[in-house]
Design a binder for these strands. Structure first.
Lengths: 340, 340
DNA sequence: GCACCGAATGTTACCGGGAACAATTCATTT
DNA sequence: AAATGAATTGTTCCCGGTAACATTCGGTGC
């Protein structure tokens, strides 16, 4: 209703109506300090009246900055990566950045290289890679990108910025919980060890198990899927010689419980199970799953902070540790015949 | 390694090296027909050598088209909307479109108006709204947008393009399954009726129930969350006078089963439960959930097809019906004391 | 040989912003 | 009152593409 001439107004039309040069309008838009208050007000009025919006393409062209962050998500089926992405998006938007995301290995398998190409062509100011496997990091290393790159992964890296949730803390919480219940024989059902998070959890598990004198035993390596864990559980021959399973994610934990139930092994009666992630249904599956919750929102915020700092060439902030949390529900109990 | 002068090459540099005008390069990029083969090859060689990528911002500025689709997702917590978004993204990318998405009501509650503003400012060529409530459609109607808008919702609409999955078919499949097992008293645990999908499922449920002569009874209206259904189930006073529950989504179905188990009501022994969505864990919760699977990938494809046609002012294709599928697992059985 | 036509290519302007630099205004200082 | 310097505003050009129109080129028909 504001302007009858259907077309989108541009900065010069605003300028003309406000009786100033287009640069003055530009300055108002960008909060340039030395603008007379009266002028600013007049310009803002016209902007309001015309319902003017700056054209981002033009701005991007002029400034060589797109105000856009590219994100590559591996396997957006997993809960963690998805949650991280969502948190990242909302933080980014609040900071005035748009997000373009590409998910890999989801149906139409596109390669890391293609994903990077696609995003750089879109002209992103920075790139974030979520939850990758070591192989894709290797692939990334070879690609020259030209913008800051942040990889969500444990362990620092000389090539990229990095952040991650503290896998060690969560794992420690889980193991300590089992040990405190009296478990001394714990199996670890890990994620694919090519995944850095899986590897980190596995390492942390071993370290902690050793510290407590838990019996060393070979881990089982899964693929994050409930199906895998289900099949594994169904394949268990006899009464297992462990009393608890620390599972690297909730999906597998649920599949495991399902498979165990078919084998007639009750949880937590005969076997305790701890998951990782706290997926939305974790509290409601039977039995409700004891699991480790991670703070993906905090992670998303940290990512955006880091990336903005890099883009704007400010000092890179130190990321404060993001704590994990153990949610004790009903899939864990003292082992049968525990002394205490 | 191609060009030592670190900066990104532009179209005129390519032209110079190829010994042609920059327009010829532009024509090669856009598959303009009247280009001598030798010229085209030479240009492509230089492009390759310099690893040149056209600058999308400049192109968008010149053509007034961004090759970008904006998506507004309500409550990206739900499985359906998320899956649709993912499918849409991958189809769009294959068609040369980028996607910008904003999720509403997720933590940092931003309004539909703000979301639309944000996306139009980004300069999208088309807008898609996924899984909305009637209230947000009403809000949308008031906003003038200037690009084609598609709303994923049941029922046609004079204002927008629309597509949706066939809620009726899925519901019919579910109800028929229960009836064929012998159930004549079925409760419907619905989603918020402000949600068009919830409303469509509810209507379809009633229609089908009536057709089968199932006893009419008031439905229960939930909020899609497992928590709600859990609380509801725990609040059940006595032995229910229905023998099956048709739940509007899997999350609530899982919560319901959880609550029922605490009340000592077994599924499917005393009560059969059918869900809707086939979330990834549906096959592995206990008992594995009988549910309706929807083809979100097909939906995503349909959305992109429709939107592209609208943007390119081609004839809008007719969307072929997207079939639903009933997955019979273990949460349904014949009612106790069934004659047959 | 020349007018003519389509194929192939070039020239120029423009899309809508911002950067750099120039110009003007205004309050202080001397 | 003139000089000074900061505040305020304007001018011009450029960002990297594409649109529109102009030009050149090679073959045809007469």
């Amino acid at each position: 209703m504001a302007n009858t001439s259907a077309d989108k107004p541009n900065i010069r039309q605003v300028a003309r109506l406000a009786g100033v040069s287009h640069m003055t309008v530009s300055r108002v838009l960008n909060n340039y300090p030395h603008i007379k208050d009266a002028t600013r007000r007049r310009v803002l009025e016209v902007i309001e009246e015309l319902d003017y919006r700056p054209n981002m393409a033009a701005r991007a062209l002029a400034t060589q900055k797109s105000q856009r962050i590219g994100v590559i998500v591996e396997s957006a089926v997993e809960y963690g990566p998805t949650s991280t992405l969502r948190a990242l998006e909302s933080t980014a938007r609040a900071a005035g950045y748009a997000v373009s995301s590409i998910s890999l290995g989801d149906g139409d398998g596109i390669s890391p290289q293609e994903a990077v190409d696609n995003l750089t062509t879109q002209g992103v100011d920075a790139l974030c890679v979520i939850a990758p496997r070591s192989s894709s990091i290797a692939a990334l290393r070879k690609i020259s990108i030209g913008v800051p790159v942040l990889v969500v992964k444990p362990d620092r890296d000389p090539t990229f910025l990095t952040v991650s949730l503290d896998q060690q803390e969560g794992t420690t919480l889980a193991v300590d919980h089992l040990v405190s219940l009296g478990h001394r024989d714990i199996l670890h059902l890990a994620g694919p060890l090519d995944w850095l998070d899986a590897r980190a959890r596995e390492r942390a598990f071993h370290a902690r198990a050793k510290a407590w004198g838990v019996r060393e035993r070979p881990i089982v390596v899964g693929d994050w899927s409930a199906d895998f864990a289900y099949d594994f559980a169904r394949g268990i021959r006899e009464v297992p010689d462990y009393t608890a399973v620390f599972v690297a994610n909730d999906d597998m934990a649920v599949g495991l419980v399902h498979g165990l139930s078919e084998r007639g092994i009750s949880v937590p009666g005969e076997l305790s199970v701890v998951g990782f992630d706290d997926v939305p249904l974790a509290a409601h599956v039977l039995p409700p799953l004891t699991t480790v919750r991670q703070n993906f929102r905090a992670l998303g915020t940290a990512i955006v902070d880091l990336l903005r700092a890099a883009v704007e060439e400010r000092e890179i902030p130190r990321v404060t540790r993001i704590p994990a949390e153990l949610l004790v529900r009903s899939s864990t109990a003292a082992p049968r015949g525990a002394e205490r």
